Amino acid sequence: MSSPSESGAQRRPGDRGSAELHDEVESHRTIGEVSTVDPTPSHPPGIPHEVLDADAHRGDGSYDHTPSGSLAVVRRRVWLRVLQAGFALFALSVVYYLISLYQVWSVGRADQQQPVDAIVVMGAAQYDGRPSPQLAARLDHVVELWPEGLAPLVVVTGGNIPGDRFTEASASAAYLIERGVPDASILREDEGSNSFESLEATAAMLAERGLDEVLIVTDPYHALRSRETAEELGLTARVSSTDTSVVGGSDAVGRHLEEAAGVAIGRIIGFERLADLVD
């Protein structure tokens, strides 16, 4: 049997060879390197890069994971989208209004006269039985249309205000009779206090006679709203505006602008509700 000196010193428990010690040192070194790495990712999961602002970005390339930075950016983005939506809605409203304004202008200058069941004259002010210049211009246009035989009836419209002895309808009828329109061919709607009420009553009068096609006579700026109101009430309506309207210049511009707003709103909420709001 060889002696310990010949076979080398016998290992005691706990003794390690140089190779084992080297492996253990390398293992500890690797573990130390791993432990020095920040386990928190530089970009928090679930939050896109664009949500994190500069305030949440650290100088070492990582992010502050407290919610304050990201929430502030989210709020700003929400407000930005609200502002963008508001601007888009405003732009669409402007375009919609401009389209309505063009239609008010173009329909007021279009003469759609053709055979119908009745010519309807929209009322305007009268002075103790005498039509105002604005109403007289409308009636003069009816006098021009009547000989052409476009309709067997003329409907004159409009009530009165407290204290007046005459209605707009009665003043209009007397004016037309003096100029050759037969009294028997004139229907009087003398209760309406605004365009909607007058056209509503006119539609009922004509419906009793089985009629529904009308040619509306009014001022150019008022033509489109009158036609669309009549259509809302079930009439088949066309317009023939007077070309001698006394409303001109800046006053006409203002009336066109107002009517464009009325038409734009009336198409959304209905012309009956519009009349309740503005007339």
Score class of each variant (00 low, 15 high):
Ala125Glu: 11
Ala264Met: 11
Leu176Met: 01
Ile47Leu: 14
Arg81Pro: 06
Ser18His: 13
Ser198Trp: 03
Ala91Glu: 06
Arg81Ile: 13
Glu197Phe: 09
Asn160Pro: 02
Ile268Lys: 01
Ala169Gln: 09
Ser27His: 11
Ile177Trp: 15
Leu187Val: 06
Ser3Trp: 14
Gly270Ser: 13
Glu231Asp: 00
Asp23Ser: 10
Leu233Cys: 02
Leu52Ile: 05
Ala9Tyr: 14
Arg75Trp: 12
Ala169Lys: 09
Ser193Gln: 12
Asp279His: 11
Val278Ser: 07
Ser68Leu: 11
Ala260Trp: 03
Trp146Lys: 02
Ala204Thr: 14
Asp23His: 13
Gly59Asp: 12
Leu153Ile: 05
Ile31Met: 10
Ile186Asn: 03
Trp105Cys: 01
Ala201Cys: 11
Ser93Leu: 05
Tyr97Thr: 13
Ile99Ser: 09
Val247Glu: 08
Leu145Tyr: 01
Val104Met: 00
Tyr96Leu: 01
Val214Trp: 00
Pro45Phe: 05
Met205Ser: 02
Ser100Gly: 07
Val239Met: 12
Val154Ser: 08
His22Pro: 02
His22Phe: 10
Thr40Gly: 01
Pro152His: 02
Ala203Cys: 08
Val120Asn: 07
Ala184Gly: 06
Thr236Ser: 15
Ala125Leu: 11
Arg227Ile: 06
Gly46Ser: 14
Val73Ser: 15
Leu80Val: 07
Gly123Ser: 04
Thr229Ala: 00
Ser226Ile: 00
Gly192Arg: 07
Ile216Arg: 01
Leu187Cys: 05
Ala237Val: 06
Val239Trp: 04
Val217Leu: 11
Ser7Glu: 15
Pro131Trp: 04
Ala72Glu: 06
Ala124Leu: 07
Glu272Trp: 10
Gly149Lys: 09
Val155Ile: 07
Gly14Asn: 07
Val143Arg: 02
Ala201Asp: 09
